[in-house]
Design a protein around this nucleic acid. Structure first.
Lengths: 368, 368
DNA sequence: AGTTCGTGATATAACGTTTCAAGTCATGTG
DNA sequence: CACATGACTTGAAACGTTATATCACGAACT
């Protein structure tokens, strides 16, 4: 059954040439005479010869693969990044080994080892917090590293990331422009870089509009999921209508959907009473009961750019300079934050009757 | 910068032993004397030696990796499968090369080639339709193949799948038990094996309950997404209330969410007027406006089992027999199909007032 | 005819590891 | 004291490929 794979040598024997010639047919077909070439190719086909990549790599010193280490393969953010990486890699005829660190230092470390052993061209990684020393060692040994969705503190490597501060600013500037004056930020834990950045962006937007940082009503959540959003939503709904924020910026879409559901439950109309903006623009955002405005990150591009930087560093002419690429997110406006002036056509039917009942207090009171 | 990686030879020189001894420290540490071993290990550490996996593989004949080829990395079904595969693989100290065929024959073919060139231990694949011959060739050349979420027609390889017929039967049996008599199936295209199987399961449930196949109201959709669900929902909502099905089984959760939204839009209460059951139990099912009942597939287990079969075939003692493993899905009952008898506590607040208006016709008329 | 090219094909030496037969050397035995 | 016995260690031969230097040979020149 498990017949030993055919080697270049057997192909050579069948074609009646030396094994060097077969190698040439494989790698430099133009230098071998036409009749010989076809004869060799026929032999390859007949025997079902498949190159042994290990032997090839051993000779070449490095493999034709790159490693991608993400925190969670199940997260759509990373799957989109992975596709971007894969696109760029396959253009350069490189294969991608996708590794899932699960945000665990031990798993990350194990995978870095595996990737180094495979002599990958380079490693793209969203590192687990505090794994800098480990990465520096990998790099020192000669494997290029590019950080994905995190920035290098030392500038000792390339990185690609998205400007989360700008994302937060876009979201809140949009809410302010729509006339909202009492604005809340829902998200947490605030120790997460992304969450903190988005909050800072929200504050920046407020300050640019003449408000103070203290005017942002912050509802910190323990996590970034729907349940946490529901809890935050309940907290907000419990506020007296006169104090309640009229615009909510959530640190991600799952939170936003939780908040949205809780608003519906408490008969607070979205967007009439409260406008909501999420973050990430997940597939479901557009398909939610009230289509969700959201800050979209160029995830695919992020992966592609990261791979390109890596390829430039690994295969380039040695003139490579480390770069920190920062992408700009953009805001996708949907019904959840549609300004009252231009209500979407379907609204009268789409709105729950609850919205009609509570729908009187449209114009949000100015709040400082 | 890109210093050449240190080899076993340099380690040997530093430790003052032969390179064979270093290899033994690496692979059979128990046979080398304690002082020598520690000396070698110190040298390894000092030089930052990393095994060259290519050289190792070249010697060993096969690599320590397995390939996983999926139709779509962004699909949560496959990401969960991938995690299962990864779990089982890492237990066997194997790395996983994850490839995304994007349902394209050419990409699949290219990746199979790459995996064969890497001399992977074996390949786990959800094949693109009609790629059987290609796979057979791979197998003939000695690389074990295990089919994931599809069954082997020839029984020439192992396969793992989930019983979609049973899933459909569970869903519809549940609706029947809750007293529904007019039942619809929403899904398509019916040429997809999974969709057809789920429909057949629905029919089986009906027949077992004494109905005919023709009693199933089939709404075929062009795709399995939210938009298609909304369209199907609109079609159903347009039916006169007396003819309208009271129980809907959707071929996946996205469709179900679309249907759910459309019901809300038309003020048809879920589950009071119409019960909905989806398929896949995606993350969002539990978090939907009305938490969605759904048929859950053991996705993680599917991947794990597939990897285990492959490992058994590739590394086993040669007594391997091909097996077709079929998992059983199970039904997760949530509010979207809660029987009227035991309404959840929150319902009175959660239901839209529309539900009250149309809520009179609870008891569905028997239909055949 | 002898020389020089040029075109193709060949033989050979790596690449870094693992394995295995063969070697060394102290220790205990007859 | 010679010798067998272990316990380690060593050296050399693979594994399959690619690159490089070499070689054969006919054509085109002196």
């Amino acid at each position: 059954m498990a017949n030993t794979p055919v080697s270049i040598r057997e192909v050579a024997a069948l074609a009646g040439v030396s094994l060097g010639t077969v190698s040439n047919v494989l790698n430099h077909p133009e230098i071998v005479a036409e009749p010989t070439r076809t004869r060799v190719q026929a032999a390859i086909k007949q025997l079902g010869f498949i190159r042994n990549e290990s032997a090839r790599q051993l000779r070449a010193g490095r493999s034709r693969t790159i490693g991608l280490v993400v925190l969670d393969v199940a997260n759509p953010f990373f799957t989109d990044v992975a596709r971007g990486v894969e696109d760029a890699a396959s253009e350069a005829r490189l294969a991608v080994i996708l590794c899932n660190s699960d945000d665990q230092k031990a798993k990350e470390s194990r995978y870095l080892e595996v990737l180094e052993e495979h002599r990958v061209q380079g490693i793209l990684i969203t590192p687990v917090a505090g794994a800098d020393a480990r990465l520096a060692r990998v790099q020192r040994r000669g494997t290029p590293v590019v950080l994905v969705d995190s920035r290098s503190p030392t500038r000792g490597q390339c990185s690609v990331s998205v400007d989360d501060v700008l994302g937060g600013e876009l979201a809140v500037a949009h809410l302010l422009e729509a006339g909202h004056r009492r604005i809340a930020f829902v998200g947490g834990p605030l120790s997460t870089r992304q969450v903190a950045d988005r909050r800072d962006g929200a504050i920046r937007a407020l300050e640019r509009a003449g408000f103070n940082a203290g005017d942002l009503h912050i509802v910190e959540t323990p996590a970034l999921n729907v349940t946490a959003g529901q809890q935050a939503g309940a907290t907000i709904a419990a506020l007296p209508a006169t104090d309640r924020p009229t615009g909510i910026f959530c640190a991600n879409d799952l939170l936003a959907l939780g908040v949205l559901q809780e608003m519906t439950l408490h008969r607070i109309a979205v967007p009439e009473d409260i406008a909501i903006v999420g973050y990430d623009d997940v597939d479901f955002a557009a398909a939610a009961a009230v289509p969700l405005s959201s800050v979209r990150q160029p995830r695919h591009q992020l992966g592609r750019a990261a791979a390109q930087l890596l390829i430039e560093e690994a295969l380039g002419d040695g003139t490579h300079r480390h770069r920190q690429v920062v992408f700009e997110p953009d805001l996708v406006i949907r019904r959840s934050s549609a300004s009252q002036a231009r209500r979407p056509r379907r609204a009268p039917r789409a709105r729950t009757p609850a919205a009609e009942e509570a729908g009187g207090s449209h114009a949000p009171a100015a709040a400082g």
